[in-house]
Design a protein around this nucleic acid. Structure first.
Length: 423
RNA sequence: GGGGAGAUACCAAAGUGGCCAACUGGGCCUGACUGUAAAUCAGGUGGCAUACGCCUUCGUAGGUUCGAAUCCUGCUCUCCCCA
């Protein structure tokens, strides 16, 4: 199956520049840029990573470009207002972390289609201002740059020259890669279309070379909100920022519609396999097969098979049994596993001997909830449970509440668990 | 350089001397219903306090007043128009 056909059935194709289909009938080189604006990539970036993966599987050579230089400038695309500049050292730290993450997903072996990892800081940092203005700037009109959506949308709110110039840097990258790496295709999210076509235009004027573009639709949730953000913010690929368990739960909690889309976008399952799973799901929706497969597959690829099994077993223990009685069936080994996957806090056993008010337990003693008011509100709305039983205001927690003489299982609402370990 | 408008809680946006911890919408949290789904409905959403209530918050620093998000002054920042 051709790359475009593959991306098309997966719903990963938004815009394609003229002639791309024909161009891709031969082995080509293509790139996607990742600006190191944070210490980790997140699930939103995973779409672009998968584009590169498909590109490589179709026999082409992918370049993952770290935007070490462009991150210092700031991309105005999709931003409603000017961003503060990132600290130089932060960008350096970020790019190392992100390079390591990217390396997990592509095959960097030396063959003809072996992936490359480059950093635009390597060439942009040494470009001299006057040279840039004379050699590059002269080929691009302000009128052209102003017409880009990313710029137009910002004319009211304000846009610094720095961010305005971003598209020129990205355009230069594309041109540079075409000169030095025979890179003829740039991919990215739909919001990058303006920046990408700027590169096509620049290369055409500078070298007469024809370059190509394809973009993926921006993933949005069924309610129209940005995908990959949950209550706590971004879902990161770094386990220190988003634990494997929470990462797993993120996928489990997707709606049916989202899960269908994500299965196509984020896994490498074939069309036949995806459709078979959807068929199964329709027969037994309560088993949440799509979500299970998705969570297992992604947690395995982003973290490890071991992390995925752990998360799955923990979830099965917590969500499988409804009542507090069942909880008593869990043995110590179960808890030993759970304590590594769930957020947890510890408490001094002696403070339980005398009895501890539930509010104190969940706030200052363990840090599960941020304030006493919050705790009180939850108690009043029946939203806080201890060992899977709702607790009321004024509840005193004692040593006999400890499971296996060691653990307390706290819950905010249905899905947010917190384990207290008594030492 | 000159003139005008503005800065309110996570976001948007009311409020123009006491009834304002601050209308409303979105978001978020919790509950009901369910399949750890969607849709829907209900409640909540600065901190401390069981509670009466107390404390901090309307760009920032002062001032007027019994009393200010609301009036005055300085400062910072943003947008618009003219040069």
């Amino acid at each position: 199956m051709s790359l475009l056909a593959e991306l098309r059935w997966r719903g990963m194709l938004a815009d394609v520049s003229a002639g791309t289909e024909e161009h891709l009938t031969q082995c080509r080189t293509g790139y996607i840029g990742f600006d190191p604006t944070a210490a980790s990539l997140h699930v939103g970036n995973l779409v672009q990573i998968m584009m590169l993966v498909h590109f490589q599987r179709a026999g082409h050579r992918p370049i993952a470009l770290i935007g070490g230089a462009t991150a210092l400038i700031g991309d105005p695309s999709g931003k409603s207002e000017e961003r503060p500049l990132l600290d130089r050292q932060a960008v350096i730290d970020n790019q190392q972390a992100i390079a390591a993450q990217l390396a997990r997903f592509l095959d960097f072996s030396s063959g003809r289609d072996g992936a490359l990892l480059l950093n635009n800081h390597d060439w942009l940092s040494s470009v001299r201002l006057l040279d840039f203005l004379r050699d590059i700037g002269k080929h691009v009109s302000i009128n052209y740059m102003m017409a880009k959506d990313a710029v137009r949308n910002r004319l009211e709110a304000g846009l610094s020259f720095t961010e305005f110039s971003y598209q020129l840097l990205q355009a230069y990258d594309f041109h540079y890669l075409s000169e030095h790496y025979q890179c003829t295709v740039q991919m990215g999210g739909a919001d990058q279309w303006g920046n990408i076509t700027a590169g096509i235009e620049l290369a055409r004027r500078l070298s007469g070379r024809q370059l190509f573009a394809l973009t993926s639709p921006l993933l949005i949730r069924s309610d129209g909100k940005k995908f990959g953000k949950s209550e706590e913010g971004n879902i990161w690929l770094d386990r220190r920022l988003t634990s494997p368990y929470r990462f797993y739960q993120f996928w489990i909690n997707l709606s049916d519609e989202e899960a269908q889309k994500c299965l196509r976008t984020f896994t490498l399952l074939s069309q036949a396999e995806v459709e078979a799973l959807e068929q199964q799901h329709r027969q037994r929706p309560e088993q949440r097969i799509l979500q299970q497969v998705l969570a297992r597959d992604l947690t395995t690829r982003v973290h490890s098979a071991d992390d995925a099994s752990r998360a799955a077993r923990t979830a099965a223990l917590l969500f499988g049994n409804g009542t507090g009685e069942d909880l008593l069936q869990l043995d110590e080994a179960d808890f030993d596993m759970i304590r590594d996957t769930l957020p947890h806090g510890s408490i001094n056993r002696s403070s339980l001997e005398n009895g501890l008010d539930i509010i104190r337990l969940v706030t200052e003693e363990t840090g599960f909830l941020p304030s006493r008011s919050e705790a009180r509100r939850l108690l009043q709305s029946q939203g806080l449970s201890l060992n899977k039983k709702p607790v009321a205001e004024g509840q005193i927690v004692r040593a006999e509440h400890l499971l296996h003489n060691r653990y307390l299982l706290l819950q905010r609402g249905k899905k947010n668990y917190f384990l207290v370990i008594a030492d």
